[in-house]
Design a protein around this nucleic acid. Sequence first.
DNA 1: CATCATTTGTCCGTATGTATC
DNA 2: TGATACATACGGACAAATGAT
Lengths: 86, 86
Amino acid sequence: MTIDPEARTPPYLQLAALIRQQIADGTIPVGRRIPSMHELETTHGLARNTIAKALRVLKDEGIIEPETGRGLFVVRVPDNETPADP
Amino acid sequence: MTIDPEARTPPYLQLAALIRQQIADGTIPVGRRIPSMHELETTHGLARNTIAKALRVLKDEGIIEPETGRGLFVVRVPDNETPADP
DNA sequence: CATCATTTGTCCGTATGTATC
DNA sequence: TGATACATACGGACAAATGAT
């Protein structure tokens, strides 16, 4: 899955959803580190602040926990990974 | 003092006047940092560009000076803090 | 102990697109 | 039409913590 800058949902929310689902389906297990902001920048072609904004969403959801100088770690599996469009 | 979106003077000028006076009355002394744009955003409920516009005014007046990656610093006390509506 | 690379977080400045008055 | 404001995004730079050397 890739980020589409033209989509209605902004890239930072697309990225948040993407990571959220990778955690939900076990691609990134609890306790492990997710890719660094720099890695996310280059692999998705987004600016630093955009990455930070996406991670802020996941952090506010209590899914990831940042540790300065170490990385971002998964602390919980999301409750509703895909709200499913009704 | 708060920003009133309904007032005749636009919010960006209200904010500029507010900060200008805080510097004038010593609330924010010369040499110190003023609240970051992000802080101003959240505390006043204004958008990024509106904050930037207000700070642009103060910068043009030579009251504040930006330092990249660090913040905005007070460099001078305004001459006429309250121009008094005629 | 010092130095450096890595990592997260934050900072300002600016640009684009949209909406309102 | 123009001024204003919002949401989003990008870019370059600074700061502090961490870990390896």
